[in-house]
Design a protein around this nucleic acid. Structure first.
Lengths: 216, 216
DNA sequence: CATTGTGAACTCATTCACAGCG
DNA sequence: CGCTGTGAATGAGTTCACAATG
């Protein structure tokens, strides 16, 4: 049982992965799965799967494995993805629009219910599902009214910190930052960064490394 | 000196971060920076900065610090971002289009030079800068001709593995996968995943966790 | 003499190995 | 008997602390 243990962040990442894989297994008609099989599918060590789950409880049946459907429910409970979440977004450029139209979010019960920009030309513009681009200066009232859980930032770097401040000021305590800037938020606010350019740097580093190891 | 040491992946991520911060420092007129200052700016430990750099050489001056411009050049050399890279992309939906229009890529010398889709309605469509959406079945010849270094995948999950196979088959050894699916590639090919939905799961997990720690 | 560079100490994460149990 | 759950062993990554030095 999870008695005050410190849980590695990578455990959370893997739980999300397991959950995804369990959905596929269920779809394919599987009722039970062993840690060995699930581990193999997710390309991790079987003991890792059991240890990850062990932080949160005992979900398996010894000698048998895990119930595909039950385990899914448990993991969703752990990750808090067993409910709907409301999101607001600042910065309706190419990337912002793409996210607003992305099917994966509503499919997982993450819903954009507010969209903001600071550009006069964009404010008032209608988006799908009755969404309208609102003035970022009216963010606070709108966010409180619509009960936003998560703030998404897709502004250029220059506007990212200010956007975060606006969300925090309106009581939003979870931020997803797509701009390639580090932004700071108070302790009670959690944040995740998605930075394409860092990923590209890692890729080119690994690519060069791979070439070197072939030549030597 | 980097004498056959195993370098943590997080070191590479941080190097990318340092580089970004050094650019800003240079822009603001700074000539030198200490590990303490750079660490503070990047929210890491000063010893971490020195250790990260230490894997690759001795770039500092004892008692003084690091030359902002020189260190930038060295890091860019390490990450192989001191040159241009050609990218091809498969899947020109909302996200694919957003990436094609994203300013951060050309600004860092990553250039999209080919765009593919399997949808007949999209093939032949003109994009900015003379780019045309090509038939994914003609990928191999096009990729070889245009000397593509990096393959970007923005198809739905169902098409992701096949897209990777196409890139690999055409000799592309670096893949950036934006679809929320695990895909497998041969050893000589490096891959990075950008999965928004995992990040959201982490965010909601942390958010719930944060709420709990306040209540208790 | 301030700051780097680095072995040693420490902390955190993964894997092993087997006891515990259905 | 087979697979889970977990303490113990190992391995990886971070931080400390100080000798080296421009």
């Amino acid at each position: 049982m999870g008695k005050e243990m410190k849980i590695p962040k990578s455990t959370i990442t893997r739980l999300s992965l397991y959950c995804r894989r369990l959905e596929i297994l269920e779809f394919n008609g599987y009722r039970m799965v062993s840690s060995e099989k699930l581990a193999w599918l997710c390309q991790v060590n079987p003991a890792q799967v059991r240890k990850d789950l062990g932080y949160f409880g005992e979900f398996g049946i010894r000698g048998v494995g895990y119930d595909v459907k039950d385990l899914q429910v448990e993991i969703k409970k752990i990750l808090s993805i067993n409910r709907e979440w409301n999101m607001g977004i600042i910065g309706i450029g190419h990337l912002g629009s793409a996210l607003l139209n992305h099917q994966n979010f509503p499919a997982r019960d993450f819903h954009f219910v507010l969209a903001f920009d600071s550009d006069k030309k964009k404010i008032g513009k209608k988006l799908r599902l009755g969404l309208i681009i609102e003035d970022v200066r009216e963010l606070k009232q709108a966010v409180i009214k619509k009960d936003i859980d998560i703030g998404v930032i897709t502004t250029p770097s220059s506007g990212a910190q200010k956007s975060a401040d606006r969300f925090v000021g309106a009581g939003v305590n979870a931020i997803m930052n797509f701009s390639p800037t580090q932004i700071t938020v108070p302790d009670q606010c959690v944040i995740e960064h998605i930075d394409f350019t860092i990923k590209l740097d890692i890729l080119t580093y690994k690519l060069k490394d791979e070439l070197n190891s072939l030549n030597i």
